[in-house]
Design a protein around this nucleic acid. Structure first.
Length: 275
DNA sequence: CTTTAACCCTGGAGGC
DNA sequence: TGCCTCCAGGGTTAAA
């Protein structure tokens, strides 16, 4: 389950190798991902130079002069650098070869995606998958005011509003529970009922949660793209709430509660986290 | 418009 | 040991 920290760590890893280099070959071994990998993509990319590796939300953007390759790791995907002679494993669906550097896209559940955006159609930010994404949590403009504005009049729970991704990107199911615990907000609170002051607290909590995870990801996954499936940051970062139902809250020792919101598990402390 | 639920898929866990 | 069922997850889309 790559969350924003893994995606960002992956981006940094591939960027140092890919940026400025010629892509000799892009090879598709299995095109049945979330959407089919475009059949002409290997031809479109053959011999083109990678300009940059960027990220928007959990989407990796591999930029070329004529377009942008959009890569999503879904929930089970990884993008690793491997030796040239390493045999492919099951679920290695695509590979990039740039000189002596080789990267494999591995995704057992095939929830990920590899797409192409032609820059003749306009900037990649206008791609349907990216156009309605919320603000980046590390954007300097991201703050409580922004959240308060986004959540105004919304009846949906704050947990679900965070996951929706139209206010802020990168807060997945794990970090939503963690950030709400940190901000001491009950996940069932209607988003529109959260005061401006608590939105400030929440914005800080989100940024702190993600940056701590990124730091953990950055240390344990320093060579993520060179390795063979290191554990994600959420394993090394001890979760206070996530998957800890019945265990004591780290603040008050009340048993952590598990509920389901929008078909997804939420973990919270019924004492520390108030509406 | 909002809200809800189904869907895509595989691996792992638990029951028998 | 094997077979069956259930569950997890992100994010889009169809239906209500």
């Amino acid at each position: 389950m790559p969350e924003l920290p893994e995606v960002e760590t992956t981006r940094r890893g591939i960027a140092t190798v890919m940026a400025g280099r010629r892509l000799d070959q892009f090879i598709v071994h299995e095109n049945r991902l979330r959407w089919p990998v475009p059949a002409e993509l290997p031809h479109t990319l053959q011999g083109r130079v990678v300009q940059a590796c960027e990220r928007r939300g959990k989407y990796l953007l591999i930029r070329f002069a004529h377009g942008v390759q959009i890569v999503h790791l879904g929930m089970s995907g990884s993008l690793r650098r491997v030796p040239m002679n390493e045999p492919r494993r099951k679920h290695d669906h695509a590979e990039w070869v740039l000189g002596d550097a080789r990267f494999l896209y591995h995704d057992p559940r095939r929830f990920g995606a590899i797409l192409w955006h032609d820059l003749n159609l306009g900037p990649v930010e206008q791609h349907p998958l990216l156009a309605r994404l919320g603000m980046e949590p590390f954007d300097t403009a991201f703050d409580g005011k922004h959240l308060h504005r986004c959540f105004k009049d919304r009846a949906v729970s704050i947990k679900q509003a965070l996951l929706a991704g139209d206010a802020v990107v990168g807060v997945g199911n794990i970090y939503a529970s963690e950030a709400l615990f940190k901000a001491r907000i009950n996940p069932q609170t209607p988003a529109g009922k959260i005061s401006a002051a608590r939105c400030n607290t929440l914005a800080t909590a989100i940024r702190k949660t993600l940056s701590q995870a990124l730091e953990a990801g950055g240390s344990t996954l320093r060579d993520y793209v060179n390795s063979t499936g290191e554990p994600g940051a959420y394993f090394t970062l001890h979760a206070a709430m996530y998957e800890r139902a019945g265990k004591p809250c780290p603040r008050c020792e009340t048993p952590v509660k598990r509920i389901v919101q929008g078909q997804r598990a939420t973990y919270f402390c019924p004492v520390c986290q108030r509406r």
